[in-house]
């Protein structure tokens, strides 16, 4: 029992996680990519992708998820998201004369590649929101362990 606790949750939770993790990632990507045609966008999609990794953290423990995306990688991806938005803004300033000008061709409505730079902007917001929430959860997860161990020592003293 104790061994299972150290390496995450029970076997059932791990199996279910293995089954649904792919669906969660695909759904997040769908929400982001089709954000300009159907309901959705970068904000909910980013939180969805963060939730997928948080599910892995809860089921398997921190070590496994850190071998997939470590805290350093996460914060670098976060910064890339912010940088992409800035670069888009300055390209728009150069081409159209205003910051964040929509410089790409508009295309036909109801198609995936329409509405100019909105897809790129959505992807950048996805990186920014998802990765920042994910690394904050990692930090909180580490902290939680200390609180528990402290409680255990308190109980031992009693």
């Amino acid at each position: 029992m104790k061994k299972e606790k150290q390496s995450g949750m029970t076997f059932i939770v791990k199996t279910i996680t293995n089954l649904i993790i792919g669906f969660m990632l695909v759904f997040g990507a769908y929400i982001v990519l089709y954000g300009h045609i159907t309901p959705g966008g970068g904000f909910p999609g980013g939180v969805m992708i963060a939730l997928a990794y948080i599910l892995v953290t809860l089921a398997y423990g921190r070590r496994v998820v850190e071998s997939m995306i470590s805290g350093v990688t996460g914060s670098i991806a976060d910064d890339i998201g912010a940088l992409v938005i800035l670069i888009l803004g300055f390209i728009g300033l150069y081409i159209g004369g205003t910051f964040l000008f929509n410089f790409l061709p508009k295309g036909t409505p109801f198609k995936l590649f329409s509405a100019g730079y909105i897809i790129i902007y959505n992807l950048a917001i996805m990186l920014k929101v998802g990765m920042s929430l994910y690394i904050v959860f990692l930090a909180l997860a580490i902290l939680q362990r200390v609180v528990t161990t402290r409680d255990e020592t308190k109980e031992d003293k009693k």
Binding site: F43, L133, V136
Partner: peptide, 18 residues
């Protein structure tokens, strides 16, 4: 946007509380 920012501030407050 304000919903997602609310989540960020909630994480900040939870971190402070812990």
């Amino acid at each position: 946007t304000s919903i997602v920012i609310g989540l960020g501030t909630l994480a900040l407050m939870v971190a402070m509380a812990i």
